[in-house]
């Protein structure tokens, strides 16, 4: 029983960074912008978060640092894509390459430093419930935050006027512009939100998931998050389900490796990547489903014609 609870708890920690990154990317994509720089923004969030916890010891500041680092990276992307109308795909790739390099440069003195990890917060009374209490109400602050973000973004997209405008901009920027909505400003904010969430995802990696800094520690999670958005057909609750599914696969292969199943460790480590390809194929093969759900203007540059 204890082993099962322990594995379920690790699934939650493995899923949380994916959840942050893919919710942020989903909002960005809903506004009609494809940002392939998630991996780079995550790494910057991770290294800045870890640097701040190392130098100040304050968890709040560290989380904020991760968030701002991701946002700063996203601002560069937004300036190029919205201001200079550069190719979204090329700029996103540049952001990832730049982020990998810059985070390695910034973090060169942080390698090998240990940190205990974010403290767990037990919610009074609720955490005393047997099994479920430990499973659901005894986490660090960022796990609670990720669930709140999902609830808020589902509410924002489907129940608010601002969410409706965001979707309109993503589905037809020309129509939205004609009605008088500030397309560029809305997209700018959506990109910044995506960056902030990617930064939080990175901060979670270096502050809680494996509390240390190593070069390139996101190991493709940013790309998996991008695939999760497609898998979830741009819906917040499905993003959450997808993130937990992938968290589960990651932890499952780690446990199988630890058990010493007669399969080489490298084959086990391939599992999350192969699973990503598999779900992408399963969802994408139904073209009409993608067409119905994907923002119609995704990836297209917008030139305001006054």
């Amino acid at each position: 029983m204890d082993i099962i609870i322990a594995s379920l708890l690790t699934i939650i920690t493995a899923a949380t960074p994916l959840l942050y990154a893919s919710i942020g990317e989903m909002i960005t994509e809903k506004s009609g912008v494809l940002n392939l720089g998630v991996e780079g923004m995550m790494l910057m969030g991770a290294v800045c978060g870890f640097a701040v916890i190392h130098f100040t010891g304050s968890e709040t500041l560290a989380i904020l640092a991760g968030l701002s680092a991701g946002m700063g990276m996203a601002a560069i992307f937004a300036m190029l894509v919205l201001g200079f109308q550069s190719s979204q795909v090329a700029t996103g790739l540049a952001l990832t390459i730049f982020g990998i390099g810059l985070s390695a440069l910034l973090g060169q003195d942080l390698v090998g430093i240990a940190y205990d990890g974010l403290p767990k917060i037990a919610i009074p009374f609720l955490s005393d419930i047997p099994v479920a209490g430990l499973l659901l109400f005894h986490h660090d602050v960022m796990v609670y935050g990720s669930v709140i973000i999902v609830i808020l973004s589902a509410w924002f997209l489907n129940k608010t006027r601002a969410g409706l405008i965001l979707r309109a901009v993503g589905n037809s920027h020309d129509a939205a512009h004609a009605i008088g909505y500030p397309v560029i400003r809305i997209r700018f904010m959506a990109i910044l939100f995506g960056g902030a969430m990617s930064g939080l995802a990175g901060a979670y990696l270096s502050l809680a998931y494996s509390p240390l800094w190593i070069e390139n520690m996101s190991a493709g999670r940013g790309w998996i998050a991008l695939a999760l958005v497609v898998f979830a057909t741009w819906r917040p609750w499905r993003v959450m389900a997808g993130a937990y599914l992938f968290g589960g696969i990651t932890i499952l292969q780690l446990h199988l490796q630890a058990q010493g199943v007669g399969v080489p460790a490298q084959v086990m480590s391939m599992l999350p990547y192969l699973a990503t390809i598999l779900v992408l194929v399963l969802i994408s093969r139904n073209q009409s489903k993608i067409k119905l759900n994907a923002p119609a203007c995704i990836g297209k540059p917008f030139q305001p014609t006054s």
Binding site: I76, S87, A94, L95, I97, G101
Partner: peptide
């Protein structure tokens, strides 16, 4: 890692 930073910067400026 400076190499990666330079390469990324070059592509940003180019775009």
């Amino acid at each position: 890692a400076v190499t990666g930073v330079f390469q990324g910067l070059l592509l940003f400026f180019l775009l």
